[in-house]
Computed example of a mutant assay.
Amino acid sequence: MATDPASDLDGKSVLVTGGAGFVGSHLAAALTDRCEVTVLDDCSTGDPDAVPDGAAFRRGDVRDPTDLGEAMRGVDVVFHQAALSDVGASVRSPVEGHRRTASGTVKVLDAARREDARVVAASSAAVYGQPDTLPIRESDRKTPVSPYGIDKLAADQHTRGFADRYGMETVALRYFNVYGPGRAGDRAGGKVDGVVGAFLDRARSDRVLPVEGDGTQTRDFVHVSDVVRANLLAATTDATGRAYNVGTGTGVPVREVAERVVQLVDSDSEIVHVEPREGDIDHSRAALGRARSRLGYEPTCDFEAGLATLVDRATVPS
């Protein structure tokens, strides 16, 4: 495996949709020294301050043909991160969720087809729903339990379908539970994204840490740096037209995450169990055989090390 998967992208023109968000801003930051980077984001949830200085920023919506067409012009590779990422919001507004995630992806794919650009699209482990067996393989049954998961599955299938139908170079990456320092341009210095970030935020102020259900449910927590690396590998692989899991292959109980955060922060927070979310899955853990053999992907940041780094970062005054 190449030590620098971005080296084959030197001099390329790339577009990062949703590049003012969590994963997108880290991805854009990893590319600005070697590529001509454009970020397209409507900033409905993203922060324009997160866009790295070396990237051209366009405030716009992937569903708007003018915004998308201007951002896509002359692009070699598209990293499509833009979507409605809030599961709860997708339940409250399923039509809007479909428009932003499924319809938005089709529009990006079609615009990229006209530019003959490769598309690396963010999919999700939510496409699998409640798994039959662990670890979860890409070929396993897909029964998503939320509108978000359904929309991600539609986007995932369209991404692979455009490769079959139009001969495009596309890759869908099924992210498991991504965590890590917040948006790459976050000036606050202490922000951490995801459930890990929520626990850290509460623990630092000695507030209650709510754990849904009994806390024995496990999740595959993958550091954002490994997600970025998977995207760079997907942008240069010959094994296109496929979907790949992006995780660590290790399941961590949610209760254990809360306990570890309290311990590392030396917090007086109490861990309290609350009602489980309706439709929540019990366990999630990625099988990485396909990603290893086809992409050369290997996770490099184990959860203990990644969490300790975030705690150290979060306790530094901003």
Rank of each mutant, 00 (worst) to 15 (best):
R294Q: 14
P144K: 14
Y175W: 12
L232R: 01
S225C: 10
D186N: 15
V95G: 01
V51P: 00
K107A: 15
T45A: 14
A30Y: 11
D4S: 08
G167T: 11
Y297S: 00
P253T: 10
L40K: 06
G190D: 13
T309C: 12
T143Q: 10
D186Y: 09
M72F: 03
A258H: 03
D238Q: 03
T315R: 14
A117V: 04
F79I: 04
R165K: 12
V311M: 08
A112W: 04
V78Y: 09
Q81D: 10
A305F: 08
V192A: 11
A258E: 03
A102M: 08
G104W: 05
E256R: 13
P210Y: 15
N245V: 04
A243C: 03
Q157K: 09
A314Q: 00
F79H: 12
A6P: 05
D238T: 10
A305P: 03
P94S: 13
R290S: 10
G21I: 05
R290A: 14
T170L: 02
N177W: 09
L310R: 04
D282Y: 10
S7F: 08
D151I: 12
R113F: 01
G69R: 02
E304V: 14
H273R: 11
G194P: 00
P144G: 12
S318C: 12
E36H: 13
F22Q: 06
D151K: 11
T309Q: 15
